[in-house]
Amino acid sequence: MKLFNPLQTHRLPALALAAALLGSSLPAWAQDESADEAPRQALNSEIMPLATKGIINDVARRGSGYVAVGERGHILLSDDAENWEQVVGPTRAMLNRVQFVDAQHGWAVGYDGAVLKTADGGQSWTLNRFEPDWGKPWYDLLFADAQTGLVAGANGRMLATQDGGESWTAVENDVFETGFHHYDVALLNDGSLLIAGERGFLARSTDDGCTWEMLQPPYIGSYFGILPHGPRGAVVYGLQGRVFAFDDVTALPTVAEPLDYDPFSAENVTDPQALAAMGWRQLQNPVEESLFGATMNGSDQAVFVGVDGSIVRGELSGQTLEAVRDWGSDDPLSDIELRAGQAVMTGRGGFYSIDSPL
């Protein structure tokens, strides 16, 4: 089933999810419940005076404005990324990721299998899917337009729609039978799809999602995000501040038998020549804290954020990254957006900003 026409798809910078990694304050409804309890019902989110100070997992462009999502189903809108207004959402489940395909049409996903959609710029939202019996999260989403997209999440589960969420089809492949969480899914500039997940899981599709191949990972730890870069390349980043780049997704070696892949017996590849032979190179990072979010700053420079207020930046065609020190907070950060003269970040304490450009 073809999902994406690269000539018609809005390409978005990859955003990394950190809902389960931003602290120990997950609400009770974000946990698995015992089998003898009654299924949870969806409840509208509550307007909270301190919503801008709570956990915010993701921020994205919404036409000329912005939208952010986080704990307790909070959805916040802003025209300038400085003044935020909360709107009522159809769930109190933790929301992990949000994407707008144009100024009016957007989607958000989170815990309890929640999938939300809006057709009025985020002023009102409907609950397209809600699976409290499953109870697990969608970690990411990728939509080409208001009708066509997919959601990816826990235990290798992925669903696709071609009719705006009226119906959903399970995306099935041996690669997904491995059961690894899918933390990020991205559309590369050549139209290829790339998934990054836990325990070194990486998978590609070069035929619009019809078939998938598992990639041999350079690092066995978890990858939390992807940044497309160049004609056929990307950067993946995640646990312990590891950042790896490749130039041609079609040239990366694959895992012949995905179900035989064992991250506990596999080894990290650290030798630069061995990495190059696999089509990879590592960007040396002075920060060892995990990275959860990133954005491009021009065609080659990227900025990454993560644990303990970590901010690192650098040229993706280079070899090293540099840390931004003492900027004002050591809270875990989940995402970043750049605007004229300012970096806007989200994390455990809501919104953060740096006035000077990165």
Rank of each mutant, 00 (worst) to 15 (best):
Q301C: 15
L283Q: 04
W280E: 00
F244N: 00
A277Q: 13
S310T: 14
N297M: 15
L316M: 11
W280Y: 13
G293A: 15
A274F: 00
A302D: 03
F244R: 01
A277L: 05
L275R: 00
L259Y: 09
T250P: 07
W280D: 00
Q319E: 13
P272W: 14
F246T: 04
Q282M: 15
A274W: 00
V269H: 01
S310A: 13
P263V: 01
E288K: 15
V312W: 04
P253Y: 02
V303C: 03
L252D: 07
V307Y: 07
V243G: 06
S317H: 05
G279E: 12
I311L: 15
A276C: 08
F292H: 04
E315A: 13
A302W: 02
Q284F: 15
D260Q: 11
F244D: 00
P286V: 10
F304K: 02
V255N: 04
A274E: 14
S299G: 09
V307E: 09
E288V: 14
V305I: 09
S290E: 05
N297I: 11
D247G: 08
V255K: 02
L259C: 03
V305M: 06
A251F: 07
L252S: 11
A294Q: 05
E257N: 15
A277C: 09
E315V: 14
E257C: 14
G309M: 10
R281C: 06
F246G: 00
F264N: 13
A294C: 07
G279A: 09
M278D: 00
D248H: 10
V255H: 01
G298R: 12
T254C: 09
Y261G: 00
L275V: 06
L252M: 10
V243A: 12
V307P: 06
A294V: 10
P253Q: 03
A256R: 09
Q284H: 14
P286T: 08
P272T: 08
V305C: 07
V287K: 14
P272G: 11
G309A: 15
F246K: 04
P263Y: 02
R313M: 11
E315W: 09
L252I: 02
P263W: 04
T295Q: 10
D260H: 05
G306W: 01
I311G: 03
D300Q: 11
A256S: 12
V249D: 13
Q301T: 12
P258W: 12
A274T: 04
G293K: 02
G314M: 06
A274G: 01
E315Y: 12
F292K: 02
A245T: 07
L252Y: 08
F264Q: 15
S317N: 07
G306P: 03
W280N: 00
P258G: 06
P258T: 11
R313I: 12
G314A: 10
N297P: 09
E267S: 13
Q301W: 14
F292M: 04
V305P: 02
N297V: 12
A274V: 01
P258H: 07
W280K: 00
Q282Y: 06
D271A: 05
G279Y: 10
Q282K: 14
A266E: 15
P253G: 07
L275E: 05
V249S: 08
W280Q: 00
L275N: 01
G314S: 11
A266L: 09
S317T: 09
G309H: 03
D300Y: 12
D271Y: 06
S299C: 09
Q301E: 12
T254A: 13
